[in-house]
């Protein structure tokens, strides 16, 4: 049975065999017609591929598209950085505002607290001075609590059913 060197033919035509291997293939080719035909066919396949792909032209605007994509990406990155600066700027503005108007704000808050204390004091004084009014207040409070409990129970019943 003749041993064909078919699997070496591809590397042979690419010049990728050692000197010894190449000599073996060449001497085999001299006497083997089927391997000669196969080699011709493989060379033809290679040439067809080279020819077909050599004729493919890249799109003319590919380079412009790449540069445009790069510039778009850069712009997007800058815009994203800009958005990150917004909360930072807001925080900085608040800090500045606090230092600039902090004293005025503290005074207003202090005055408001004093006014509230005076109002609470006046209300309790008025209630203790008129006993009927305090009795009425207690009654009104009880009424509000009962109404609240009742409405809460109804609300819970409706949601569970």
């Amino acid at each position: 049975m003749t041993y064909h060197l078919e699997d070496q033919l591809s590397a042979y035509m690419d010049g990728e065999l050692t000197v010894e291997e190449r000599q073996q293939v060449e001497s085999h080719l001299e006497s083997c017609e089927s391997c000669q035909v196969l080699l011709e066919e493989l060379l033809s396949v290679q040439s067809t591929v080279i020819h077909a792909f050599g004729r493919i032209q890249e799109p003319e605007d590919l380079e412009i598209r790449v540069l445009q994509a790069l510039s778009d990406k850069k712009e997007r990155a800058t815009a994203e950085k800009g958005w990150l600066l917004v909360p930072l700027a807001a925080f900085v503005s608040l800090v500045i505002l606090w230092f600039a108007a902090g004293a005025i704000f503290a005074k207003v808050l202090h005055g408001f607290l004093k006014l509230m204390i005076a109002l609470v004091y006046m209300g309790s004084h008025l209630l203790s001075g008129v006993p009927v009014l305090s009795g009425l207040t207690v009654l009104l409070s009880l009424l509000i609590i009962t109404a609240s409990v009742y409405s809460l129970r109804r609300l819970l019943q409706t949601s569970t059913s």
Binding site: E6, E41, V45, T48
Partner: peptide, 15 residues
């Protein structure tokens, strides 16, 4: 080497 040989044989068949 072997992959290229097999690939060319397959392409020859397809062509």
């Amino acid at each position: 080497k072997s992959r290229l040989f097999t690939a060319r044989m397959s392409l020859r068949k397809e062509l």
